[in-house]
Amino acid sequence: MLSKEEVMHVAHLARIEIDEEELEKYQRDLKILFDEIDKIKDLDDFDEDRMFSPCENAFDLDRRNVEVDKDNLLLNVPKKKGNFIEVPVMINE
């Protein structure tokens, strides 16, 4: 079972605030899921040399003359200042 500290670490990585009650629920849920997921550790009869990639080579596609939408970009912005997007002050730059 994940320790409370581990769950808190994951919650911080995911930037999801959780309270004490949720913390215990996640400890339980994650345990159930990981008992299942950990089964992958027993799998060893497979070919290790290649990771799956949905398509063969990025070179097959050429993006020249691609047009990507750029209208109304700031329409959904929660907080704006002029043309800038505003957030609480950033530290740790």
């Binding site: 993006r63 990507v68 043309n83 800038f84």
Partner: peptide
Amino acid sequence: SMANTNINVIDLGYPGTLPLLNK
């Protein structure tokens, strides 16, 4: 250029957008 004018939905990380590799 002026702030947030030289961008599209990809640059703003809009949901549904995908990276297109520039060769």
